[in-house]
Design a protein around this nucleic acid. Structure first.
Lengths: 167, 167
DNA sequence: CGTAATATTGCAACATTATAACCTAAGGTT
DNA sequence: AACCTTAGGTTATAATGTTGCAATATTACG
């Protein structure tokens, strides 16, 4: 595991790393990380809690950008295409990817209390894919697994009082 | 695998089986399988292609039922609670479950050409869950995996001409 | 540089999916 | 029957996402 969002960490490193990876990826692919796109990426990376498209609009307006739905959806599409963010269907929300690149299997755990989402670079996912392909004779192009439950901080543990607040 | 929707099968057996399971499950739990609820379940089971909530409305109207959104959403909520149907987030659509009962891990393969969805009773899913719980220290309550790609009939195979039509 | 081609953004309207709130009807129990 | 609980009818609205076209910015090229 490259990181665990449920443990204390210097989040500015997450953001800096994400931006730097985005820049080099865009450079490599000849894609343009425009101001709106970069700002949307920054906003998404403000926390590990997936953010809805419409939540981004006021923030963009605040920064002097246009803030109609197509603006943010176009930026999101761009970031999704490059694998810089993932979309969590169960939440209709978007979250940063810390190992962007090609189309890769995606598995997230989402805490149903604090809302923070942790991506898992999971070996078992590939095994699952191969098994499905064999059993059904299908070709798998994309895959997304979403697990929900309680993260360590939000479990009503014996020792702790309770929880994280939504970050 | 109890069945494979991508292979020829007597679909009336699927429907009959689903209805009979629904009836006994409702009886056991003291839940009321009313006419609207049963009709919605039948409509969902008309094919293995997940169906959107708003697609059900005209069909209900046709049968003399009320057909405003809350009607169908309430029926869907009922069926979802009992595990008689699943909701596929990537499609915003609903599909029947052929082994209803308690909350169980869900894995679907969805053909991106013909739209038919096959649920997989997958052992690997539980292994995945346990691994995630151990690595992250989390408690998993629900899980949904959605794979997309091409089913055997829809692959541009060497031998075949092409595809299924959307059923 | 100047111009054409391409990519991006602004803008308005609209489509799709889902829910809230409030009331009426049906069914079950005493 | 009187009462309670669950289910359904109805209207309006919220939340999420898209289409189409004009305007502008960026890049490519002569």
């Amino acid at each position: 595991m490259s990181q665990n969002v449920y443990q204390p960490h210097n989040h500015s490193h997450c953001v800096a790393n994400a931006l730097s990876q985005a820049q080099s990826l865009c450079h490599d692919k000849g894609a343009r990380l425009t101001k709106v796109r970069q700002r949307v990426l920054e906003l998404i990376w403000q926390s590990h809690k997936p953010v809805g498209a419409y939540e981004l609009l006021p923030a963009l307006a605040n920064d002097g950008f246009n803030s109609a739905p197509p603006t943010v959806y176009r930026a999101l599409d761009f970031l999704l295409d490059l694998g810089l963010v993932h979309r969590l269907h169960s939440l209709n929300a978007y979250v940063g990817c810390n190992h962007p690149g090609a189309n890769h299997p995606v598995c997230f755990f989402i805490c149903e209390h604090c809302g923070q989402a942790q991506e898992l670079p999971n070996d078992k996912l590939n095994a699952l894919t191969r098994q499905v392909e064999q059993v059904l004779g299908v070709q798998v192009h994309h895959q997304l697994t979403e697990l929900t439950g309680l993260c360590p901080s939000c479990q009503p543990a014996s020792g702790e009082t309770t929880a994280n607040d939504h970050a």
